[in-house]
Design a binder for these strands. Sequence first.
DNA 1: GCAATTAGTGATTGAGTACTAACTTACTTC
DNA 2: GAAGTAAGTTAGTACTCAATCACTAATTGC
Lengths: 186, 186
Amino acid sequence: MSAEERRESVIRAATAEFARGGYHGTSTEAIAKRVGVSQPYLFRLFPGKKAIFLAAAERCVDEVVRAFAEASEGLRGEAALHAMANAYTRVIAERPELLMMQMQTYVAVAAAEQEGEHGFGDVVRAGWMRLWETVHLPLGADIDQTTDFLAYGMLINCLVAMGFPPEHRVWEGLYPSARSKGRLEH
Amino acid sequence: MSAEERRESVIRAATAEFARGGYHGTSTEAIAKRVGVSQPYLFRLFPGKKAIFLAAAERCVDEVVRAFAEASEGLRGEAALHAMANAYTRVIAERPELLMMQMQTYVAVAAAEQEGEHGFGDVVRAGWMRLWETVHLPLGADIDQTTDFLAYGMLINCLVAMGFPPEHRVWEGLYPSARSKGRLEH
DNA sequence: GCAATTAGTGATTGAGTACTAACTTACTTC
DNA sequence: GAAGTAAGTTAGTACTCAATCACTAATTGC
């Protein structure tokens, strides 16, 4: 397998592992095991653990952004809103590690900025802005609606992270589609 | 100082440290240093690191719940909403570690449940329900408004975690009061 | 005044972990 | 078929960290 292909599978494996354990709660050995490769080999593919985390974080934003962009393609306003809400529901059901990784990325910023890692926060914030713009335009550039959509998304992320089963009361009041699929499967 | 008083200051110190580094990114020595006590002594006050984390997490929920309950005391509907929004703004400005610790608690659930720690998720979810009820009643038991309020709260948490400065565009569309004070100070 | 309890420390241990160095194996190319 | 290169491994290092043990100093109760 080529190094580039390996790097891809490392990113996928790292996303799953970091999504569960966060940066400090995930060992490079766990990632290597999931990839099916020796642990030291990771350091040939990436300069270090932080680089792996960052690559996974960026890939994660890419995928969510792409899901929203594809869902809303050619649509505006309410139609785009529903399309994107459904798309997010699919992400929750099929790729829960994407949103868990997002959460892990957010909480990693403060610690990273306190240590020397001052580039990390910029990357995360840039990712958020990319997500923001991606939903902003299809929603007719309406700031309030964009904020609303993202706010509900973050609430859903938190509920999923906490492990509330989809039939639980807390899902009342959310997109019906999200309610029916909110379980984080293992 | 009595053991009980010490435990209190450990909880305060642990909240601050865990809020920054999360469970795995925080050493018991860092907590001990902040308390001004030797690291082994923590294990006389608490059975282990997990117990310290859990105590801090529960305390954190207590304080936020109390802030909301006090703010909304005697108020209903819109008045209660504004009072609680202002209260949350004050928490953001004065006790940012409370909301960062909440985020850290949420992302810690999945990892904890995967290992043996199956009680942890229940505690976190119970804390969320307590918070939910605390805002639900003053808002006239309106589920949609409750969901809305909490959704905006979670969005604010994420923005604060990412370190967006209060004058940044992403704060547009949020409570004006939150916009003016959203910075996480160090 | 002494016995017991309480608050607290220093030294240590054993497990885990990011990362390095040196080596191996297989494929390509001339 | 030799030389080079790309993919991958084994062994090891230096370090961090949660937790334990054995000990000390002060306070309290009788």
